[in-house]
Simulated assay, not measured.
Amino acid sequence: MSEHEAAPEAGPEEDRQEEAYEYVPGGKRRKGRGFKGCLAVLVALVVLVGGFYVALTKGVDWVSGQFQGPDDYPGPGTGSVEFTVNEGDTTAQIGRNLKAEGVTKSVQAFIDAAAGEPDSAGIQVGAYELKEEMKAADALDVLIDPDNLIGFPTVTIPEGLRLTEIVSTLAENTDFPEEAWNRALDQPDKLGLPDYAEGNAEGYLFPATYEIKPGMKPAGILKTMVARWQQAADEAGLEEKAAELGHTPAELMIIASLVEAEGRGDDMPKIARVIYNRLDGPGDKGGTNGTLGIDASIAYGLGLSPGSTELTPEQLAEDTPYNTRINAGLPPTPIEAPGDDAIAAAANPEDGDWYYYVTVDLSTGETKFYEDYDGFLEGRDEYKAYCETSDRC
């Protein structure tokens, strides 16, 4: 083609090729992707960056959660909560109870606090005053200090009560009715009674003051009372002394109950000696023929309140296993709960040849001892004279 000829016009294919190129500064051209291709790339990039951001955020939250620890209140808390640690509660159970009471925010917070505190293993059973929404470590500090225990309610069993009276006293001073105590007594194998008690708790529920701790049930309380009796028996050397005296431990417990019913203080070892003399002495000495003549036992056999009134001739003549005027020897069981002094007196009777005694002054408890029946008659006359001027008889 000569220089004077016009260039031919571009066709459709050439137009498309031209449009496919873009201007590049410096006079260079490069092949482009077009608008739609750029948009797809842009969308993919946004999705990729967004996904990375979400994943990164969740990852940071997860890592933070691993180091943040369990949920816990900042404390110090508000209000007042009476919280009880029960017998047998584990650390985890205490934690669950704290959370349920609104004291701590999570169980794990308390478990973690306890894991770092050696004294947490010594948390005592009982009630404590805490607050709502406490920091778990602060709640633990209260629980590990026994000075923070709220005092337990107590029940006192005086010396000389019969089993029925002990049950009534326990029912009146606890949340358990008499039926619950009697059901527990019907399962003597769970009370720790000695074999020689033959399942009868009369005389073996030791008179003392007992704390009624949270979670304690009648059987557990009665078992504690029997354990306290065992302590007194061991201190008195009951079994060893019984062997020395030629009697069984069960007989010594019956004697101890009779001594409790009949005497007080320094007279107890002397009364014990009178009982042994009547049991073991010659049948005709003193004219007792082996009978004890203890009216408290007769009243027990008749179901009468002890010491309420003087027994009538008809009552004294009624034949029951506990009538110690008719029947020689000991009654079949203890008649009431002896204390330390009575048990010690039965195990260590004072030396003497007494066969009789008379309490000549009911106000002071003055008791006189005699070796024969004539002496007893003198004491009885002195008692009658006392009654003429006293309303105690």
Rank of each mutant, 00 (worst) to 15 (best):
F206C: 03
G281D: 08
I166D: 01
D112Q: 12
R392L: 15
A197Y: 02
A227V: 03
P306F: 10
S64R: 15
A171D: 08
L304C: 05
E310H: 11
A272G: 11
P76I: 10
H247C: 08
H4W: 01
T359L: 08
A201R: 03
T84G: 03
G375H: 07
N182S: 07
S308I: 00
K285N: 09
L245M: 05
D15T: 08
G290Q: 07
H247N: 09
P338R: 01
A243R: 10
T324I: 08
S390A: 12
T154W: 07
L302I: 08
L279Y: 06
R162N: 08
L304F: 14
I212L: 13
Y210F: 15
A92D: 13
V274F: 04
K131A: 07
K217F: 13
P214G: 05
I123S: 06
G122L: 05
G199T: 09
H4N: 09
P332E: 04
D284W: 05
V155M: 03
I343P: 04
L222F: 12
T248F: 09
E14M: 10
Q17F: 06
M253S: 10
D141M: 08
N200G: 02
E13P: 01
A385V: 12
K36T: 11
N182R: 15
D138A: 13
P313M: 05
G329R: 06
P194L: 10
P76D: 09
N327A: 12
H4P: 00
P158H: 06
S2Y: 12
A219R: 12
G77H: 03
H4Q: 10
G192P: 03
G301Y: 07
G199R: 13
L191C: 03
F110Q: 06
R325S: 04
I343W: 04
E371R: 07
K190H: 05
A346Y: 04
I123C: 03
